Computed example of a mutant assay.
Amino acid sequence: MQRRPLVTFAFSSAALAAPGLMRNASAQESGVTSKTLGIGCSAPVSGPLAGLTHDSRLGMEAAVAHINRRGGIFGRMLQLNITDDAYVPQRTVDNVKQMIAQGNAFVLLSCAGTPNNQALLPLVEEAGIPYVAPLTGASSLRKSLRNVFHVRASYTDEIRRLVQRLAGMGLTGVGVVFLDNGFGRELLEDATHAMAEQRIKPQVQAALTVDGKNLGEVLDKVAQARPAAVLLATVGSASVALVRGLKKNHPGLLMAGTSVALSGDEIKQLGKAGSGIAVTMVVPDAHLAKIPLVRDYQSAMRASNHRVFTQRSLETYINLRVLAEGLERAGAALTRAKLRDALASIRNWDMGGFVIDYASQPPYVGSRFVDLGVFSGTGRFLT
């Protein structure tokens, strides 16, 4: 896999300070030298969630490229190292172990998947490596871990917002189609609790395999129940076939999903079939250029020759900038302990329309931002 340079955001003149200001001891920590800093990421470059990684990678790379063009952080160029785990948890763990052993990762950023992060977090704590912005909103993973700094709001927050919206529309019979793994089952549990709070009857619960091979059975189950709306607790390529099947069988059926239900590539595949689907957003609308942060993101994407803007690439752009802010605050004489303390010190940091605020004690969760959007036939949100 070809590596592309990642950018460091230089937020102060100190970021461009000469490498000679750094103590030799800091360069001895794995993954960092006087000239480079390795960022490790394990993600599904292949397999059913490859579409998510495509968008994620573009956002991170655009941010890294911007930062490195500005001279890096304290003279260090950021190097993003992404390895493929195909959404297999053990491969995620093996990838990170190898990165640490080979000295390719001073810090971890945005490894993807709920089951993958569930397997990874014990290793992160044991290795003492800072980990910023896991790409999962699973509340079960938001534990009191000293090395893990979540950025996005939780799936629990997202599901609650969706169910509140459905209740406000007067809907009483709602179905849930969930991915048949740890991710989907946790979202099902969140949905069950949220619907009970709103006195909404769970009309049907159908488990969709990760590869989508039992789609026919799921569609039959939904058809028999005839719910007024369906919550999509799915992710990846399986979501595309599911939406198409539901649209074909139930043209007027209301569908609503979380922020990860459909990636940019999957929305493109759906085309007009994606029109009317409601989803949560854990970052602002990637096309809303009136927001300063979004303008910065779009500028960085264009500078990297990318002109397709997506929620996922904006999210990972933000994640990289949160890491960069921590590196800035940690200073030139960098250690992992200093980076942990620096990240924990972030309070009410306004990135330009999006605020990050970590409490002094773990679990560290930077944002509770949740908004709602409805896709148009062009794949953008209706305004």
Rank of each mutant, 00 (worst) to 15 (best):
V7K: 11
A14L: 13
A15P: 09
A15S: 09
A15T: 13
L16A: 11
A17N: 08
A18Q: 12
G20H: 12
L21E: 09
M22R: 14
R23Q: 08
N24I: 10
A25L: 08
A27E: 06
T33M: 09
S34D: 07
G38I: 00
A43Q: 00
V45Y: 09
G47W: 02
A65W: 04
A65L: 07
A65S: 12
H66A: 05
R70Y: 02
F74T: 06
R76L: 02
R76T: 00
L80P: 02
D85M: 06
Y87Q: 09
Q90M: 13
V96Y: 03
V96E: 03
F106V: 05
F106Y: 05
A112F: 13
T114K: 11
P115I: 14
N116Q: 10
N116A: 03
N116C: 03
L121W: 09
L123C: 10
I129Q: 03
I129M: 01
A133H: 07
T136L: 04
G137F: 05
G137V: 02
N147D: 08
N147Y: 06
V148N: 01
F149V: 10
R152C: 14
R152T: 12
S154Q: 13
S154L: 02
S154H: 13
T156W: 11
E158K: 03
E158I: 00
R160K: 11
V163D: 03
L166N: 05
M169H: 13
G170W: 15
V177C: 04
F178N: 06
F183G: 10
E186Y: 01
L187I: 13
E189I: 15
D190L: 02
A191I: 04
T192G: 05
R199C: 02
I200F: 10
I200H: 05
D211P: 09
D211C: 05
K213T: 13
L215Q: 04
V218C: 01
D220L: 15
K221C: 14
Q224E: 13
Q224L: 15
A228E: 15
A229V: 09
V230I: 15
L231Q: 06
A233L: 09
V235G: 14
A238R: 14
A238G: 06
V240T: 12
V243P: 00
K248H: 01
N249K: 11
H250L: 12
H250Q: 12
L254Y: 10
G257A: 08
A261P: 03
E266L: 06
Q269T: 12
L270D: 07
G271I: 05
K272R: 14
K272G: 12
A273Q: 14
A273N: 08
V279Y: 09
H287M: 11
H287I: 15
A289W: 13
I291M: 12
P292V: 14
D296A: 15
Q298E: 00
R302P: 01
A303H: 05
S304A: 12
H306S: 06
R307Y: 04
V308E: 04
V308S: 07
T310G: 00
T316S: 03
E328C: 05
R336I: 03
A337L: 15
K338L: 07
L339E: 02
W349N: 08
W349F: 13
G353D: 15
I356F: 11
A359K: 08
A359G: 11
V365R: 15
G366Y: 12
R368D: 05
R368L: 08
R368A: 14
V370D: 00
D371P: 02
L372A: 07
F375I: 04
F375Q: 07
S376K: 11
S376G: 15
G377R: 08
R380Y: 12
